[in-house]
Each structure stands twice: as structure tokens, then as C-alpha cells.
Design a protein around this nucleic acid. Structure first.
Length: 673
DNA sequence: GGCACATTTCCTGTTT
DNA sequence: GAAACAGGAAATGTGC
């Protein structure tokens, strides 16, 4: 008998459902995913709204279902034909209690090679999903409240005690084994199915508790396992909605409101096509597949502390990396080089933190990871080099800005009050005028520190700085980065002690600086310098702004407020974030490089015209305006190398911000102004 | 009213 | 040949 589902197959425009339920759904890029034999073991599904770019994933076929399950700390089981079991997950704890999941054991398999491929593919995609989901959720203030437990901070919503979703059912028809499976792990599962104590109407209630607010949705009957999963995916959609509601992207979304049932995912599945595909995928699966035969003792829940934030390392100096960050970095390397995780021995690095990593030589890497050690070493060198270049860029920008301003001031005040200029610089930046004019490198940090100490500043940023982890010195003179470290670090230890630890003296760190291929480079910026979110950017910008105003007391130059609303490039940037316009009107070619393409040029122009109340806007005019951005470095020309389409492709430049967090845009923005 | 700014409009010439 | 690109020059709307 065909199952009656709460999801009407004809109701949704879902490719996976449109045809008869597929037994096997091929999934790009490797066509390896077979949902018929590969499903999450729990209903721990993180929903993904169709936000584009670097915010979250944009598609959830089977692989993302798995990815989501993985991201939400669910175990993943592969149950091939014959009900044999293949489990892959493990914990590799380090001294601080963090851990990372990776496959450790495979049991007898049917179709061994295929399963192995699936496993690898899934792990890769799971990690990818986790990163993206984390990125996405991390942008929501919802997850940044002070009530977060330290041990779960930066983790996904469902891991938080006050943010649990529960699907509580009052029905009798749930598969008892299914209930057993899910209820036994309800505390760790994002979405749990819990039988209601007063069975009556075969309904389940989707309860979303976030803080003090509880929202309940009464849903239809559950008659199959896939109904449960569907319900979980709706819960996932609600998670996404909650996150979006409180996120900076809320204005760019096309979503639903719980207050308006007609906009709920139940009634508007086109907004959540990925989620609504799940049932279609799972309809092709044996309904008894959901671990109903498993012994739960084989399937212990993963502890709460098993999440690793796979993006955090990007915002830190390598020397500040924890062991988790090191592992996350390795995963990133593996992903970028298409190295299967099962061929990447993470355990050998499980207790290595950033400091130790920086002390390791190539042979240490190779020792621990014979196959890819060299690659890891080179990647680390590259990262350090890149990091320092970026840092240098900020410094240079700040310095050149100061030089420019100082020269202006000097010209202006030559006949008036030369002392003022000197005092202004000294007071505001803690640096000497001669130092600036000599083009001497000035630690960028000193700009922040000096400014934050200026009690006369129009803007008090001192409260903001600690929140970013920036430590201030009592002295506003030239700054030694090592003064700002929270804890004593091995970086400050002598080469001798380094030698003791690794039996080598030649490391990447020498006397507080990264020593890169015998070329001394800039000292490592403190952790704070690597925090590159928009808040920081704004603070940097404000800091410089404040100082600009101070140094231009004669004639303050205020920031332009001439345009109504967004500027053109901001409009395009926002369009790239909006699922309504991305990818139909604009889309990313390479979100990491900031390369995007205009798909529907005239439509984009029309939208821009609507925004500016100008019905005569054309792409020709819009593109002319965009070309003015080349001069300002908001856009940079895209090389016509054949890498990208030759037409309608643009690239954000160093002075564009917000398309991807960056640390220097605030400074550079001021600079071109 | 003057100014700065961010486009907008129009144009010619070039490249894809 | 059409569409897009490039960039000069002047005009425009807005906010200060």
C-alpha cells in the first residue's frame, strides 16, 4: 500500500518528486550518492535556505542531507543491502576536550568500493556542509547571545540547550523502533521525535523553543518514516528562518513568517525546494531503513563537545590556533586539494596547536603525514606569507594615508600652527611625525590602541575593542605584538625550548616573528588583527575616521551621505546574497575571489532603476557607473584569460567590503576617499 | 548658493 | 552586426 504522506507529491515543484520516486538519485559532482543506501541515522537536519554566496549552501540533494546530518552532529550510517551495517565516525579527543569526527571503522560491506567512495564523498561533503552551515548560522545574532555555554559557543543552534526543536507526536502509528532510536538520543539530536503521553489524534507538534519564546505548529499525521524526516526538514526550515530573522541578511530573503501560515514552508515549498526534496529522496528508500534494526548500544551519541568550528582558524593568526583550528585548517587543505579525508591522517595532528605547528619543519609534517606532509608544510608557508602580506597591506595603507594627511596638514598650517599637526599625530596615534613622514612601518595595532585611549575622541571605541579580543596596553607608544597575547605562548620561548620540544631549532617562528624561508618578515599580528568580520571592519573604519577628524580639526570632512540607500556596487553585492536575484540575475563565478557575473543585464538595470526611481536606467548606463568603480578599486578588471566568461563578469576589488569579510577594506576605503 | 559626491546621460571608439 | 566594454565629458540629484 502506498504511503499517505503529509507531503503531496504533486503539490511541490521538486525534481526529485516530480517523477516517480527515484530508487537512485545521482548527485553531482561525482554521481556517487545513492540515497537508497545512505541516509542519516537521526533526524538531525540543518535546513539551508537558498542563500547564495558564502553564507550557506545553495543546494541540498542527498549529499547535503548527509552533510546537514553530519553538521548537526548526527551519526551517519550506511546500510547497504542485506542490512549489514557500516558505521563511520569516531572521536579524536585532544587535551582540551575537543575532537573531530572521522571514519575509523568499516564493517563488512556489500559493494565495497562503491561504499568506500560514498563514504569519502560524504565525509567531504559533510565537512563542507558543516562549514557552510556554520558560516551561515554564525552570522545570526541569535547564536551570539551571552547565554551561550562556553563549551558550545560557536556551535550550531541545535546543540544549544535552549534552542531545541522537538517534534512531539501524539500519534500511535509511529514505528516503535524508530521512536526508540530517536528518543534515546533526543538530548543530542537537533530534532527528536518524542511520543506524546496522551495519544489521540495522530498529530505531531513541532515545537520550537528559543529562549523564552515557544512556537508550536500542529502538523498532520505521521504515518511513515519519511513523514518524520519531512517534519524534521520543516523544523530545519524553521531553524533557517529563525536564523535569518535575526541575521543581517533578513532584508534579502524571500522567506516565510510563522505569523503568516500562507507563507510557511508547508504552503510555499518553492522557497525550500531542497528541503522538500528530502521526502522524495527518502521515498525511494526502504521504510524500515531508519535504524529500526540497530542495536543502539552500537550507536552511542556523540558528546556535545564534538563540534569543531571549521572556519574559526581563518580569523586567527596561526600561532593562536588551537588543536581544533589546526585540524580545521588541515581539512580545508584536504578539501582544496581533493584529498579524501580517509587518506588524511588527522590523528597525528590531533594534539598539535598553532604554536607547535609553526615550530614544525617539513620533515615533521612528513613524519606525521607521509603522503601529504610536504603539501601541508607548503600550505602553511603559503598561509603565513599571505597573512603577512595582507597585514602589511593594511599597515601600508594606514601609513600612506597618514603621510598624505600629514602633508596636507603641513601645507595648510605651514603659516599657522605647525605644532598642532605634530600634537595631533602624537596624541592620536602615538607615533611621531617624523616616523610617518619617513614612511616607517607603524604597527596597525597602535592606531587602534592609541585611538581607544583618546578620551577626547568623538567616538568611544574602547568598549568595542575588548569584545573583539583586542588587548590594550597601558602604553600608547610603539607596540610590541607579543605584549598582547592573552597567554604566554611558545612563540616567546627561546629556540632552546623549541628545540627541546621538537628537537629542531630551525622553525617557522624565531623570536616572535615568523621566519619564512630565511626572509624575516613582519611580526605576527595579534589575534585581533585577524578578526575580519564586519564589526571589526567598522571599528577599524571608525577608528581611522575618528583620527581623521581629529587631524583635520581645521576643516572636518564628513562622510558623504549623498546617495539614497545603497550605492550601486552595494546593490549588486546584495543582489549576490539574495536568492531572488542569485543566480537568476547575478551569480558568483568565484565567491572567494569576488568574481561574479551578470546573467540578466537588463533585468539588473531595471532593478537598479527601480531602486533609484529611474525608469530610464539601462545596462549601458549601469555598466558605465560600474566602470567608475575601477578607479576607486571597488571593482577590478577581470583578466580575460579564459578562466571566466569574457563578458558581464566583474570582480570586487580591495575597497569593496561586505561581499566577503576582509580586514583592510575599511582602511582602504578611507584611503581612496 | 556652492560644493562634493555618486551616479546618470550621452557619446565615440574598440573588442568580443 | 550585435552586444558588451572602455572611458571622456557634461549633467543631475542629493545632502551638507
Amino acid at each position: 500500500m502506498k504511503k499517505q504522506s503529509i507531503w503531496n507529491e504533486n503539490k511541490y515543484n521538486c525534481p526529485a518528486i516530480a517523477a516517480s520516486p527515484p530508487k537512485i538519485i545521482k548527485s553531482s559532482p561525482d554521481n556517487l550518492i545513492d540515497p537508497g543506501s545512505f541516509i542519516p541515522s537521526r533526524f538531525s537536519i540543518i535546513g539551508s535556505n537558498n542563500i547564495s554566496g558564502d553564507v550557506t549552501s545553495s543546494a541540498i540533494p542527498a549529499k547535503y542531507l548527509l552533510a546537514a546530518a553530519f553538521a548537526s552532529n548526527s551519526q551517519i550510517a550506511n546500510i547497504p543491502q542485506g542490512n549489514s551495517l557500516n558505521v563511520f565516525k569516531s572521536l579524536t579527543s585532544d587535551s582540551i576536550g575537543s575532537s573531530i569526527q572521522q571514519p575509523i571503522s568499516t564493517f563488512s560491506l556489500n559493494g565495497c568500493q562503491q561504499t568506500s567512495n560514498l563514504l569519502q564523498h560524504t565525509i567531504n561533503n559533510s565537512l563542507q556542509g558543516k562549514t557552510q552551515t556554520t558560516n551561515f548560522l554564525a552570522n545570526s545574532p541569535l547564536f551570539q547571545t551571552s547565554s551561550l555555554d562556553q563549551t558550545t559557543n560557536n556551535l550550531l543552534l541545535p546543540r544549544l540547550g535552549t534552542n531545541n526543536f522537538t517534534i512531539s507526536s501524539s500519534g500511535q502509528q509511529l514505528n516503535q523502533n524508530l521512536i526508540d532510536d530517536t528518543i534515546s538520543s533526543s538530548n543530542n539530536s537537533a530534532f527528536s521525535v518524542i511520543p506524546n503521553s496522551t495519544p489521540s489524534n495522530n498529530k505531531y507538534t513541532l515545537t520550537n523553543t528559543i529562549g523564552a519564546n515557544t512556537l508550536s505548529n500542529n502538523c498532520s499525521s505521521i504515518t511513515s518514516n519519511s513523514d518524520i524526516v519531512s517534519a524534521a526538514s520543516m523544523a530545519a526550515a524553521l531553524v533557517a528562518d529563525k536564523a535569518l530573522n535575526s541575521s543581517p541578511f533578513q532584508n534579502q530573503r524571500n522567506s516565510f513568517s510563522l505569523d503568516n501560515p500562507m507563507q510557511s514552508p508547508l504552503n510555499n515549498p518553492s522557497l525550500y525546494p531542497q528541503l522538500f526534496c528530502l521526502q522524495g529522496l527518502l521515498d525511494g528508500i526502504n521504510t524500515n531503513i531508519l535504524r529500526s534494526h540497530m542495536n543502539t548500544s552500537q550507536y552511542k551519541p556523540i558528546p556535545n563537545n564534538t563540534h569543531v568550528d571549521l572556519t574559526r582558524f581563518r580569523y586567527k593568526s596561526p600561532k593562536d590556533w588551537t588543536a581544533d583550528d589546526v585540524l580545521a585548517w588541515m581539512i580545508d587543505v584536504a578539501k582544496r586539494h581533493n584529498i579524501g579525508m580517509e587518506r588524511f591522517d588527522l590523528t597525528q595532528f590531533a594534539t598539535i596547536n598553532g604554536n607547535l605547528l609553526l615550530m614544525m619543519q617539513e620533515e615533521h609534517f612528513i613524519e606525521r603525514e607521509p603522503t601529504h606532509g610536504k603539501l601541508l608544510y607548503q600550505e602553511l608557508l603559503h598561509l603565513i606569507s599571505e597573512t603577512n602580506n595582507n597585514y602589511k597591506k593594511v599597515e601600508e595603507s594606514a601609513v600612506s594615508y597618514l603621510v598624505q594627511r600629514l602633508k596636507e596638514e603641513e601645507t595648510r598650517s605651514k603659516n599657522t600652527n605647525n605644532l598642532l599637526v605634530t600634537q595631533t599625530l602624537d596624541n592620536n596615534f602615538g607615533i611621531s611625525r617624523n616616523q610617518v613622514l619617513a614612511g616607517k612601518a607603524i604597527p596597525f595595532q597602535s592606531l587602534l590602541n592609541a585611538s581607544s585611549q583618546d578620551t577626547n575622541s568623538q567616538m568611544n571605541i574602547s568598549n568595542s575593542i575588548p569584545s573583539l579580543g583586542i588587548h590594550q596596553t597601558p602604553n600608547n607608544s610603539h607596540l610590541n605584538y607579543s605584549n598582547h597575547e592573552k597567554t604566554p605562548s611558545i612563540i616567546k620561548t627561546s629556540p632552546h625550548s623549541i628545540d627541546k620540544k621538537l628537537n629542531k631549532t630551525d622553525s617557522l617562528i624565531v623570536n616572535g616573528s615568523f621566519n619564512l624561508q630565511n626572509n624575516p618578515i613582519h611580526p605576527s599580528p595579534s589575534t585581533s588583527s585577524f578578526i575580519s568580520n564586519q564589526n571589526n571592519e567598522q571599528i577599524i573604519e571608525r577608528t581611522v575616521n575618528t583620527n581623521i577628524q581629529k587631524s583635520k580639526e581645521i576643516k572636518p570632512r564628513k562622510r558623504s551621505q549623498h546617495t539614497k540607500g545603497n550605492k550601486l556596487w552595494e546593490f549588486i553585492r546584495d543582489a549576490l546574497r539574495d536568492p531572488i536575484t542569485n543566480p537568476s540575475i547575478v551569480k558568483w563565478e568565484d565567491p572567494h575571489q569576488g568574481v561574479f557575473r551578470i546573467i540578466e543585464s537588463e533585468k539588473l538595470a531595471r532593478l537598479w532603476g527601480e531602486k533609484k526611481n529611474n525608469q530610464k536606467m539601462t545596462y549601458e548606463k549601469l555598466s558605465r557607473a560600474m566602470r567608475t568603480y575601477y578607479e576607486k578599486q571597488i571593482l577590478v578588471p577581470v583578466p580575460k584569460t579564459g578562466l571566466y566568461p569574457k563578458k558581464l563578469v566583474y570582480k570586487f576589488g580591495p575597497c569593496a567590503f561586505g561581499w566577503k569579510t576582509d580586514m583592510c577594506s575599511g582602511i582602504l576605503k578611507r584611503n581612496y576617499e
